[in-house]
Amino acid sequence: MGAVLVQMDNGCLLRLEGTVDIASAAEFKTLLLQALAVGRDVAVSLEAASYLDVTAVQLLWAADREARSQGIRVTLSGGCPEIVRRSLAQAGMADLPLLNN
């Protein structure tokens, strides 16, 4: 997995790469908390991601709620690969706020 947090002028960019699953869940949560702590919108890039498991999706979902409660947003930067979108749809998670923000 790869999850890279990049500080931008207008917030943070969290770039996900490859398979994002339980093996990296703890690290992913830490990065999300760090990004939200900045207090600005968080952009998430899925362009290099190939698979998100349940742990990754529920972290993104919880991050979205947290952001809304702070008055900021978690947004998708760039597109979502078809393979990721399709597997989320198969899992009944196509309405993940990140994909619809």
Binding site: A25, K29, Q58, L59, A62
Partner: peptide
């Protein structure tokens, strides 16, 4: 799903 800070990342909610 609990708030992000309380979420145990390896648990299924």
């Amino acid at each position: 799903l609990p708030p992000l800070a309380e979420l145990e990342p390896e648990r299924c909610y």
